[in-house]
């Protein structure tokens, strides 16, 4: 089966780090949209589940020159040699050839966590506990997204529920093509400064495709060769140099040397 003929879209994202204020609205919207259960009281940042993290980084200079950036980090939707896909023993992780989205099938997941060790972005989360919602909150669950059980892995899937919704809408109109404005992930929608752009990278006219080609665009750990489809934008060179260790080092040398 030739995937190239089937692949119609390559959904991707561009996140402008110069706009992001680190407010965290995206990760809240994500959790609500995708029925991520609130953590137990004992949970910490390494055991809790949040499909999206916002990481604070600093350039290391002293106040008042110090600069800060916030990096929203979720599944980077690797396109080539997708690390988590090839390692899963039972096909519970798959790249949809029609959308390029790396999907996780929790119903099939064994919970071996091999995909988690494979992911360089730490974007995968294991359900260490049974999901639990405070009394009454379960009424607010999103009916389009199935909650996951204890012992399986989950991660960002570009709001798969919303893709289904958009497809249903298109189908109702007798079309096979979805309207791009019908499919917008929750984080994109919730960002108050519109730092996140989402769309089909194959569509030259799409904002996201244009931004991905901008001079300010870079991807984290791109030298691993996994071709992530989440781009980050920044005009600040110290932020761009966070892309990988070799770059980060070159900066240190110029500073100290």
């Amino acid at each position: 089966m030739d995937q190239a003929t089937v692949k119609q879209s390559r959904y991707g994202m561009a996140i402008d780090l110069d706009r992001c204020t680190g407010c965290g609205a995206c990760l809240m919207a994500c959790a609500v949209e995708n029925n991520v259960s609130p953590g137990r009281p004992t949970v910490n940042e390494r055991t809790g589940t949040t499909w999206m993290r916002v990481i604070e980084v600093q350039d290391g200079r002293a106040f008042p020159a110090a600069e800060t950036a916030f990096i929203p980090m979720m599944c980077q939707q690797c396109e080539e040699e997708t690390p988590c896909v090839s390692v899963c023993p039972q096909n519970a992780v798959e790249v949809d050839p029609e959308t390029g989205i790396v999907g996780q099938i929790p119903q099939r997941c064994l919970g071996c966590r091999y995909c988690m060790t494979a992911c360089p972005y730490h974007a995968r989360y294991y359900n260490w506990w049974d999901p639990q919602w405070p009394e009454g909150m379960e009424k607010a669950l999103n009916p389009d997204v199935a909650p996951r059980m204890r012992g399986v892995v989950e991660k960002c899937n570009f709001c798969h529920g919303r893709l289904h919704d958009a497809r249903a809408k298109a189908a109702a109109k007798g079309s096979r093509e979805i309207n791009p404005t019908d499919y917008i992930p929750a984080c994109v929608e919730s960002c108050p400064v519109q730092a996140i752009t989402f769309g089909d990278l194959n569509d030259e006219a799409a904002d996201v495709a244009r931004q991905a080609k901008s001079e300010r665009a870079f991807r984290f750990l791109s030298r691993l060769g996994t071709e992530p489809k989440v781009y980050y934008l920044s005009g600040r060179s110290w932020v761009q140099r966070l892309a990988d260790r070799e770059l980060a080092r070159s900066k240190k040398e110029t500073v100290h040397g």
Binding site: V87, P89, Q90, R108, L110, G111
Partner: peptide, 23 residues
């Protein structure tokens, strides 16, 4: 004990990903 869903261990046999080392 290590896998989260031991009862699903047979899934690996039922639909194996032949490219995975774990398979």
């Amino acid at each position: 004990v290590d896998v989260g869903q031991p009862l699903r261990a047979w899934f690996t046999f039922w639909h194996p990903n032949v490219h995975s080392m774990l398979t």
